[in-house]
Structure formats: structure tokens, C-alpha cells
Write a protein that binds this DNA or RNA. Structure first.
Lengths: 155, 155
DNA sequence: GAATGTAGTCAACTAGATTGACCATTATAG
DNA sequence: CTATAATGGTCAATCTAGTTGACTACATTC
């Protein structure tokens, strides 16, 4: 009996609020650390580069749900700040591979730790089991909605 | 045993994806209905005006987490489209009250129904109990993070 | 080897916000 | 009371992160 009278259609709003609160807390933290002004799009870029090698600007554009021009600009920012490098593509002379530098990989570990701390605080409130369920249920929605879940910030 | 191996710090990403998928589905639906190009910010405006009377542009700005100029512009759009009116403020001669028109109120009901349908689809996957829990757990995070949960789209 | 497709860049434009200046009205301090 | 400060709203200029469109260089396919 956890209900406490849920209004129909309220969940999306709550999702927005929680996600927004979490990202605000993270980016506020990063700001106090004197980091470059990293935005969510940069975070999603790190994520992709961590998961896959041989990522091109076009791949990044697909992942973020933006044009290749926008993706390239984001990559250039990260390059300027020393988080990634553009390397020649092993097989395609037109393309260049986007790859994290050591600084980039360090940042990913650091950011993951910060996210994890937010999660931990939440777990302390509602319990680890519930967080596991949450994870499961969110995954269910994502896989049900097909490839729709691009990562671009919402509008 | 619902875990299926959750990576630490993965939850925020999933929240983002689900929220993004939901809003995309909603706005796609609205578009096929031939609606004006309503954005999330408009939705959050409707929500506030539904909940409170005597809302001013400054109140809206606070709610959305944007400047009063931006909030005013959003209000003007909704006014142009006939969803809201600006009325004289009962006690403050400087201020004007933002209020939904009948068309605005109709829209709110319609949008709530669409959100609810997305929820229902989710409920069909994971069950109503789980959705109730989700609601409870999201609320827990929101109330723990204080007034931080402004509704402005994330970056 | 010619035609078509694709990765990337450059440049011009757009949307949605920001900052700053300002006016009118309200609230507060002497 | 009045003088001063604070507040709601608007106008104008600017910024930012994206877009579209045109183009080059390399790849693929026939």
C-alpha cells in the first residue's frame, strides 16, 4: 500500500522533476569543482565513447539525436578542453575516430561516482530493493518504446 | 530478485531516456492532431495555472526556472493561441494575472489523458502496484531535494 | 572508371533563452 | 506624508546551441 493517491498522468512530471533535480545537483557540484561548463550532451558523449570504440561524429550525432554539425561542435569543445582526441579512422579515410583521452576517462569515473552518490542517497531513503525495481521498470519502458530514447536534452 | 545487474550511476540516464521517450510520444501525438507547436515549457505553464489562481509572470518565471522575460514570452504565445488570458491583478496595479481560458482548460484535460495513456501502457507492462511504488519513490526524491525541482527543460 | 553515397567542414540562419535599461506602481523608512 | 527602495512588466540587444544548405574529399557500387 504505497499509493498515497496517485493522480493519473502525474508520473511523467515527476520523472522530469527528479531528473532535473539530479542533473542540477551534479552540474552544481562540477561547477564548484571549477570544471569546464559541461552540459548533459557532453555527458552522453562520454557515455558513448566509453561504451564503444571507433565512434565517428556521425555516430555521435545519431546517439545524441542532433545533426552531425552539432555533434562535431560538441566534440570540438571536448577536444579543446582535453577530454577527447580525433584520431584517423583505421579503415575510412574520410572519417575520424573520437576517443577519450586519459583526462576524459578520469572524468567519466569521477562523474559516475557523483551519479552513484545521488543514487546512494536515494537508496538510503527508499531502499536498494526499490532502486533495483526502479531500474528494472525504467528499462522496461525504454525497451518498449523502441529506438525512441535518444539522449538529447528535452527541447 | 529484479536486479538484472544494475550499474552504479545508471539510474539518472534511464530517467532521462524514459522522460525523453514519453515527451516525444506526447508531442508527436499533439503534432498529428494539428496542435500549435506546444513545448514542455507550455505544459508546465498549464500545470501551474491549473493548480493556482493569481499567478503572475514572475510567479511563472520562478516555477519554470527562467527569467521573467522568457516567462512572459511563453505566456504571450499561449495568449496568442487562445489558451490563456492576462487579466488585471485584483490588488496590485503593476501586475497582471495569467489565467487559462476555456480552451486552455480543455487542453489540460486532453493532455492529462494522453499522459495517462502512456502511463497505462507502462502499467500494463509492469503492473499498477509497481507504478504506485514508482510514484512514491519519485516523490521521495523530489521532496528530499528541496525546492530544487524547477521544471525548465534540462539544458 | 563513372555515378552515387557518405564523413566532415564552413557559413548563414533560427529559436529560445539571457542581460541590461527602463517605466509604473507598490512598499517601506524617516 | 513624502522620499527612497523594491517589484512587475516591457523593450531591445545579445548569446547559445541548435538548424539548414552548400561544398569537398574519400568510398562504394555498378
Amino acid at each position: 500500500m504505497t499509493s498515497s493517491s496517485r493522480r493519473r498522468g502525474e508520473i511523467p512530471l515527476l520523472l522530469a522533476m527528479v531528473y532535473r533535480a539530479m542533473t542540477d545537483e551534479l552540474h552544481e557540484h562540477l561547477r564548484t569543482e571549477g570544471r569546464e561548463p559541461l552540459r548533459p550532451a557532453h555527458g552522453y558523449t562520454f557515455r558513448l565513447l566509453t561504451e564503444r570504440a571507433d565512434v565517428t561524429a556521425v555516430d555521435l550525432a545519431d546517439h545524441l539525436g542532433v545533426t552531425k554539425q552539432a555533434a562535431s561542435k560538441i566534440a570540438t569543445e571536448l577536444e579543446t578542453w582535453g577530454y577527447l582526441e580525433r584520431r584517423p579512422h583505421p579503415t575510412d579515410g574520410r572519417a575520424r575516430v573520437l576517443a577519450l583521452t586519459a583526462k576524459g576517462a578520469d572524468y567519466v569515473r569521477h562523474a559516475d561516482e557523483l551519479w552513484a552518490q545521488l543514487e546512494d542517497r536515494w537508496a538510503a531513503q527508499i531502499g536498494t530493493d526499490r532502486l533495483d525495481q526502479l531500474h528494472h521498470d525504467l528499462r522496461a519502458y525504454v525497451s518498449a518504446s523502441g529506438g525512441r530514447a535518444a539522449l538529447r536534452p528535452v527541447w
